[in-house]
Every structure is written in C-alpha cells, then in structure tokens.
Simulated assay, not measured.
Amino acid sequence: MLNIKSKKYTHSFKGAVLTAALLTLPTMSVNAVDFKKLPSLPLNVKAVDVAEGVSIPWAIEALSNGDLLITERSGQLFLLRKNTSTLIQVKGLPDIDANGQGGLLDLALHTDNKNSQWLYLTYSSAEGKGSGSNTALMRAKLSDDHTQLLEPQVLYKGEHNSTKGQHYGSRIVFDKQGYVYFSIGDRGSRDLNPQDLSRDGGKIYRLHLDGRIPTDNPFVKQTDAKHAVWSYGHRNPQGMWFDAENNRLWAHEHGPRGGDELNLIKSGLNYGWPVVSYGVNYSGTSFTDLQTKDGMQSPTSQWTPSIAPSDMLLVTSDKYPKLKGKVLLSSMKFSFLSALTFENDTLKSQEKILEGIGRVRSLAQGNDGYIYLGLDGQGIKRLKPEL
C-alpha cells in the first residue's frame, strides 16, 4: 500500500523487523549521465532538407518503395513520395483528440508471413467512458497508392479517459514471435495510474498482432488487472527498440526534472514510478525520498539533467560506417543524438553526435539506407554523408 504524505512517496510494510531489514540494504545507485560530459563522435554528414510543413513529426515510417509516412501530432498522416518534397495527406484516420501532448503519435509497418502488410498507429482517442481521452492502438491496411487507410481495426483503447493533456506515450515495436508492444504514459496522474494494475496508463502493453491478449502475459490470472500489461511503473515512455538479435525490449522514458530513464523491459516488472525516481518536481521540490527500492527495477541508465528523449533507431546501413550497429537515441531538450553501443543486456557506451541539430522528435532509416530525422518546427531532414 502506498502512503502519500505531503506529495512524497513512502512504502509501508507489515512488521517492524521487515522494515528494519530493508532499511539496512545497500543502495544500488545508477550514475547520472550528463550530456555535456558525453564524448563526441565526429561524423562527416550534412542534414539536408527533405520536406517542410510538418510542425511536430511524431513518427516516420519507411516504405519498401522509398516513400515515407509521417505523422503530424495535430492529427494528420502524410505520405512523402520518393525524391519529392510535397506532402500528400493520407485519408481514413479515426477521430483524434489532439490536445496538449496528445494527437496522432507513432506508426509502425508490419509484414506477416503471408506478406500481408498492416500499418499500426497510436493516437489519443475520446472513445469510451469519461471526459477527455486516452491512448489507443489501431491498425489498418494501406491502399495500393498509399494514400488511404483501409479496414481499420482498433486493437486497444486505454480506459479512464482524462482531460489532462500530458503523457500519452507512445511508441510501437514488434518482436519476432508475433507480438506488438506499445506504451501509454501515466496521463499526468502519477498518484493513480502507474502503480495500479487495474488502470491504464504508465504501462507497456503486449498483444498479439490482431489485438488478442496473449495467455502468457504476466497478469492474465489477476482478475483486477489489465491483462494486456507487460510492465508497469512508467512515467512517459516515448522511445522503444526491440533487439531482435538478443530478444531484448528496450525503452526510455521522460523523468520529471532530471531522471530520464533507459530501461531493459522484462515481463511483469515494476519500474518504480513514482515511488522511486532520480528526478524532482519541475519546481525543484522533492516528491520521493527513494531512488531505489526492493521489488522495483532500477534503470540501466538515467540522464540528469533531463534530455527529453524521443525515439530510438538501430542503424544497419552501410552509409554511416561509424554508426552501423549502434542505436541512435534522440534528444529534444538539448538538440542532439546519442549513439548507444549495446552488448546483450548491457549498455556499453554513449557518444554524442550532431549537437545543435534541433529538437529531434523522430528517427527512421529509409529503404535507400539514409537516416531521416523529424525535427519539431523544421520538418524532415536526411543525413547525407559528405565525401
């Protein structure tokens, strides 16, 4: 049971002996990463303008023919034809409650074993009970010319709608076993959602590709729990990457003031928000005295000051020899990218690249091998290697 006093979180246990024992446990602190102290990785690349007219390009998805799909958070889906700069509006979107941090969010294309392609999207939806909205996951097929969504199917809609405009999440990734993962932020209700398995928000979810709930999800036998939940205790996860080679799911999330986290996501684990955190309130006041706690998973890495992480991308292209095999992680607050090197379940290094490029919201690697960036207020750019 959580005891909430003066906006600070403590945790009560039955029995003084257990409490005393826990208080004597050694603290396993996660060192803060200060982006100013990260080593730089020089790159001989130039950011070339590709398309303007997208204010907040939440996601970019590359199609096999070289076209790009781009979400505009305000509620539009655009098609950018290969070698053009004109945005074409894709029709067939559901009703979207674009407010605050909500709107049209992530998209991810999946091809099944029968070569049937589905486009998955997350967005803020006002459907269901209560005022306001919450994050929904849907899928649809693309028309042959990629300008129309067909056969739309809503796979999951978070309950407990809220009029708050914060923390919708949301990213989408697939594993190699036929599951889709997506995130919903705590919706600005840290006291209610993240630690309560009966409520949506502050969670990462796992579904079959058609929306069915897997029978081996960690909480399917708990009658009062959301059975789609894969992990909980999250604040606002806006970046995910599935390491197919090692069968690992990674996610990063926004902390408050300080304490942005990178987490290795595992089934059923509690990642602690808001009972434990390396951050403080935006005003500078403290809301918890705990950075670690028994039964709550500590992050692999944390950034203080906050970098406002947004997306993740594994680079496989030969066009960027220094980046191949690394995972790019974009920062909105300080206008740079990190190049992360992983070894199995360990983050080995972080290097800073492209400092000053702008508020990077989204990342994609095109069918042409180039890396594309979505920058708030600047549109879409391509990283062109300079010889």
Rank of each mutant, 00 (worst) to 15 (best):
F182Q: 03
K176M: 08
L197D: 00
Y181M: 02
A225G: 09
K203N: 06
S198H: 11
R206L: 08
A136Y: 02
F242G: 01
N193G: 02
D144L: 14
P218M: 12
Q148M: 15
H234C: 05
Y168D: 05
N247C: 10
Y168R: 06
G259C: 05
P218R: 12
T223F: 14
K226M: 11
G258H: 01
Q148A: 11
W230L: 01
K157N: 11
R199L: 15
Q222Y: 15
G158S: 15
H160F: 15
L142S: 03
Y232S: 00
I184A: 08
E127Y: 01
Y168A: 05
E127S: 07
L197T: 03
H167A: 10
G165N: 12
G169W: 01
Q166S: 10
S231R: 00
T163M: 13
H146R: 12
G158C: 15
G178I: 07
Q153G: 12
I184R: 02
N193Q: 12
P237I: 08
S124W: 02
N217D: 00
E151P: 02
L142R: 04
G130P: 05
G158M: 10
N246M: 04
R206F: 00
L209K: 10
F174C: 09
I184N: 01
K164R: 14
S133L: 05
S124G: 09
F242S: 01
A140L: 05
P237M: 10
N217E: 00
F219N: 02
R190Q: 12
S162K: 03
R212F: 03
N217K: 05
Y205S: 06
R206N: 02
T135H: 08
D210I: 13
P256M: 14
P256F: 07
E127I: 12
L209I: 14
G201T: 06
N217P: 03
G188C: 10
R190E: 13
I204Q: 08
S170V: 09
H234L: 15
F242D: 00
G128Q: 04
S131F: 04
E151A: 15
G169S: 12
I213C: 05
R248C: 08
D224L: 15
S124Y: 04
G255N: 09
H227C: 05
Y168Q: 00
D145T: 09
D210E: 07
W241A: 05
R190N: 12
P237W: 04
S189D: 11
P256K: 09
Y179D: 05
L209C: 02
M138L: 13
D243V: 09
F242I: 10
E159I: 00
S143C: 13
Y232L: 10
M240L: 11
S162I: 07
V220N: 03
F174L: 12
G259W: 01
D186L: 12
N247V: 11
K221C: 02
G202T: 00
Q148W: 06
N161H: 07
R187K: 14
A228R: 02
G165K: 07
G132A: 13
P256G: 04
H146P: 04
G165T: 11
A136D: 09
R171T: 07
R257L: 14
I184T: 11
Q153R: 11
R248L: 15
R248F: 14
L149M: 10
T147Q: 13
S143L: 14
P214Y: 06
A244S: 13
G255V: 07
L249S: 00
R212Q: 13
L137Y: 09
K129S: 14
G258T: 10
S125F: 07
